[in-house]
């Protein structure tokens, strides 16, 4: 009997595509690694990887490039994931950033550059990874919409948007010289809504910060910023207030904006995302720092 192809939903097809991509990397790369940022996209990616290689364990380690400034709830989730049998998690903190005390209050944009971009390059070089999975999606930002699923990087990790390899069908050219590497984005064709619908369908556990709860926040430059620990520097006159908020993306807590929300389940978030008026990266200071083309510029320099 012919199986009805109509039965495949968009989530089925996106899931199949991501699994296919991950298996291609494992079949052809020398030393793959999966970037694990603890966020929802990373968590979905991890869930897909478990499916791709079932019943075996993950055939690559996870890498968390830690800035030491992430939400406490994120560290709790990370430690829980690390404790899962068969999981090999590498945590990398840029030793230079650590010794220089780089932080989001004093160093602004430099904080991300040094902890994240430089830290990532250090870790990739240190462990000689030649293919790194990232949770980037093409709907996130203009420069992402033209990035390949297999994004080729030079030995210095830079990206040349004008010289990308043509990517036809689901055939991926992973050939490269020693020292060069690939960034691989299995979620390229997913949107924020797809991610949430998948989280709902699969019952995937996320950092609780993605769901609304009363949290202490201050309003700063039009952003609701959560006061997550004692390192937060309140300006004179600033008093944290409890508000019902959740986060659409997670990063360093002092530079990640919350949104007011009552969504406490994935289904609530799906409904809210359908009616959302603002883009997802709206809450990310990183995109605004260097103006219009800031993420593209960071990516050329080696950011994910």
């Amino acid at each position: 009997m012919q199986v009805d192809v109509h039965a495949l939903t968009h989530l089925d097809r996106l899931e199949s595509e991501a699994i296919h991509i991950m298996r291609e990397v494992v079949a052809e790369a020398g030393r793959p690694v999966m970037l694990y940022s603890i966020g929802k996209d990373s968590t979905v990616m991890l869930h897909l990887a478990a499916k791709a290689f079932y019943p075996g364990p993950l055939p690559f380690p996870l890498l968390h490039v830690d800035t030491t400034w992430e939400f406490r709830a994120m560290y709790a989730m990370r430690d829980k994931v690390a404790a899962t049998p068969g999981t090999d998690l590498i945590v990398w903190q840029n030793p230079d950033a650590l010794s220089q005390g780089i932080n989001p209050f004093d160093h602004g944009a430099l904080h991300t550059d040094i902890w994240k971009t430089e830290g990532l390059k250090q870790a990739l070089n240190r462990y000689r990874f030649d293919a790194a999975f990232g949770g980037g999606r093409r709907d996130e930002e203009k420069s992402r919409s033209k990035e390949r699923i297999f994004s080729f990087r030079t030995a210095t990790h830079s990206w040349d948007p004008k010289d990308q390899r043509p990517e036809l069908w689901n055939l991926y050219n992973m050939a490269k010289a020693p020292g060069e590497s690939m960034r691989v984005f299995p979620l390229s064709n997913w949107t924020e809504l797809d991610i949430w619908q998948y989280i709902e369908r699969e019952g995937i556990e996320l950092v609780p910060l993605y769901y609304a709860a009363e949290r202490p926040v201050v309003e700063r430059d039009g952003m609701l910023v959560m006061v997550d620990d004692e390192r937060f520097r309140l300006l004179s006159g600033e008093v944290p207030h409890l508000r019902h908020v959740r986060f659409r993306t997670l990063g360093c807590y002092p530079s990640t904006g919350a949104v007011e929300s009552r969504a406490v389940t994935a289904a609530d978030v799906v409904r809210e995302t359908l009616h959302s008026n603002t883009s997802e990266r709206h809450g990310r200071a990183i995109d605004r720092e260097a103006g219009y083309a800031s993420l593209e510029k960071k990516k050329r320099e080696g950011y994910f």
Binding site: G257, V259, E260, S261, E272, H275, S276, N277
Partner: peptide, 9 residues
């Protein structure tokens, strides 16, 4: 903006 009332009108 972060202080949008939700759900949107």
């Amino acid at each position: 903006m972060a202080d949008n009332p939700l759900p949107p009108p």
